[in-house]
Amino acid sequence: MSSIFEVKNLKFKYKNNQENVLKGINFDIKEGEIFGFLGPSGAGKSTTQKVIIKILEDYQGQILYKQKDLKDYKQDFFEDIGVSFEMPIHFSKMTAIENINFFQNLYKKKADVEKLMKRVGLWEDKDKMVAEYSKGMKIRLNIVRALLNSPTMLFLDEPTNGLDPSNAKILKDLIREFKNSGGTVFITSHIMSDIDQLCDRVAFIVNGEIKEIDTPRNLKIRYGQRQVKVEYRDNNKLIEKSFSMENLGNNNEFMEILKAKDIETIHSGETTLEDIFIKVTGVTLDDEQ
């Protein structure tokens, strides 16, 4: 897969800050993948997104989009991308369809709005004022707004934040469908499960620095522990024991327990991405930077 974005030694400082918010980060986003930025609040996730979608422009380093310097792109860049910000952003005194039509007519390429709104379950409520929408509906409308120009690349900032599980599932399915149709996705999130379930590759970002980039699977293999946890009764006492999956069939103690003891539960377990994040970065996802 070729890279759609290449970010080299990216540094960024807000005007009133003394220190760089981004401290020379390097990463690339491959065409057709879902690439995630996982980090606690204030780590630099949203700033990175704002830089690579050309909202913040006074950066140092180099960003290439489709092998061309991002600084050489004008407004045509926005024909190619779709952006969903963390906060739902709409004109509240206009209906949902008025909002969508207004924004869509600013683009040359146009997606099928009816299909999109039906997909996120908003078509029935398209003529309601956005002010009457619940937070979940506004977030779903945000995604429709991001997709209305059939973008090549989608940027999602904390896409499921504030959504209930069923709405979060609709959104995740939509993101997967976008990827399966050939789209590329950049997600920033502090919600580990989003990244774990959706992303092909993930970058751990803490304090403006990328600490690790790989696929969730490789990270788990590299940093995680694959274990089997057994609970059994011995003289009416509940005992729990963990065994490494390495050469498990040759582990005499484990085999003995299986043969001789009254097993209550037996589970295989992998280290979660969140555990690995803590192990690699030394901070938790709930920390404020």
Partner: peptide
């Protein structure tokens, strides 16, 4: 109040 300017910034409008 509605932060709608950010949506406008990521459209092709100059």
């Amino acid at each position: 109040k509605e932060s709608t300017m950010s949506s406008m910034l990521v459209t092709p409008a100059r």
